[in-house]
Design a protein around this nucleic acid. Structure first.
Length: 319
DNA sequence: CTTACGGCCTGGGTGC
DNA sequence: TGCACCCAGGCCGTAA
């Protein structure tokens, strides 16, 4: 399941291949998961790629400014301006802001989406539905068994509308911002971690792993967390996500990076999909329960369940 | 407004 | 061998 660390790994892989390349042609297989495929085909053919970046679990393949006016046939563009701003380092600026935002291809990998850059002559893997032929004889290919992914063209000025509501990137948020957001909410902490409007990029694997590391039960509510618990969770999230990125993500099912290689963080999972196995910290059996509509794995010994009282709070108040 | 929940999308894996 | 069923993540509608 591509979550923040997996998407980050794919982005880094694509950054090594795509910037500077020109998209020669776009072809589709099934398009039921693509928004306006014709717009993608006509809008990106002939365009040069300037960069690739991550925004939460989304990938953005950015184009250089369309040379001149002709939205028709950009045949002229012999002078393919080299990507000036190189890949750069980690600190990414908000993808929704920025003075000039050029057209970009927005991609969400869903559960089984894969992006690779094989030679055009390479055999096509089953369930490959989008092909971006490049000017160096290779293709950026999108493969997605379940087609839970999503793809759309973001034109100039559309980023804020499409991505603006997403929450903070967990690796960029400060402890203060994190605590303020979580501490003010009455929803279960597991639901808050998965809510992309609170934090962008965390999914089921890293929510469970972080909660275990922080020794917090997934059913606890955000506003029940003591300051030190909020701090522990913040730290656990950071450490877990960074470690996962270092190990190139978790390959629990179909996930592979841009080179087609599996990640290794699944070997470090402490609770995810370890129901019945022993807790690495205390030896108790890892349990699984549905929280926030998702399978949640935790150690009932290390992560104490909250008191049952699920009573209806007296309305008003808050403030 | 906030929260909880059920359903939907698709297809691989599993168990009978 | 076949087949029903479960499950995954995001999103949306509905209800409290």
């Amino acid at each position: 399941m591509p979550e923040l660390p997996e998407v980050e790994t794919v982005v880094r892989g694509l950054q090594a291949h795509l910037p500077g390349r020109k998209i020669v042609e776009v072809r589709f297989g099934k398009t039921d998961f693509v928004i306006e495929p014709e717009a993608i085909a006509s809008g990106l053919a002939g365009r040069a790629i300037s960069g690739v970046r991550r925004f939460g679990k989304f990938l953005l393949v950015e184009c250089e400014a369309a040379d001149s006016a002709g939205p028709r046939d950009p045949a002229a563009g012999a002078a393919t301006k080299r990507a000036m701003g190189r890949a750069t380092k980690g600190a990414e600026e908000p993808a929704t802001k920025g003075a000039e935002e050029n057209d970009a291809l927005l991609i969400h990998l869903g559960m089984t989406g894969q992006l690779t850059v094989p030679p055009s002559s390479a055999p096509v893997a089953p369930h490959t539905h989008v092909f971006f032929a490049l000017d160096d004889g290779r293709e950026l290919r999108y493969t997605d068994i379940r087609r839970f992914g999503q793809m759309q063209l973001l034109r100039n000025g559309e980023r804020e509308r499409v991505l603006g509501a997403l929450g903070l990137d967990p690796l960029e948020a400060s402890e203060k911002e994190f605590s303020a957001r979580f501490g003010a909410r009455h929803a279960r902490v597991k639901a808050l971690l998965l809510d992309q409007h609170v934090l962008r990029g965390v999914g089921n694997i890293y929510a469970d792993e972080s909660l275990w590391r922080a020794r917090i039960h997934p059913m606890r509510t955000g506003d029940s967390l003591r300051p030190e618990e909020l701090r522990r969770l913040y730290r656990a999230l950071q450490v877990t996500l960074r470690e996962a990125i270092r190990l190139r993500g978790s390959s629990v099912s179909d996930y592979v990076d841009a080179e087609g290689a599996r990640g290794e963080f699944q070997l470090r999972h402490r609770v995810y999909q370890r129901e019945g196995k022993k807790c690495y910290r205390c030896g108790a059996a890892i349990r699984r329960a549905i929280v926030a509509g998702r399978s949640s794995h935790f150690c009932a010994q290390c992560q104490r369940a909250p008191r049952k009282q699920k009573q209806i709070r007296p309305g008003r108040s808050t403030r």
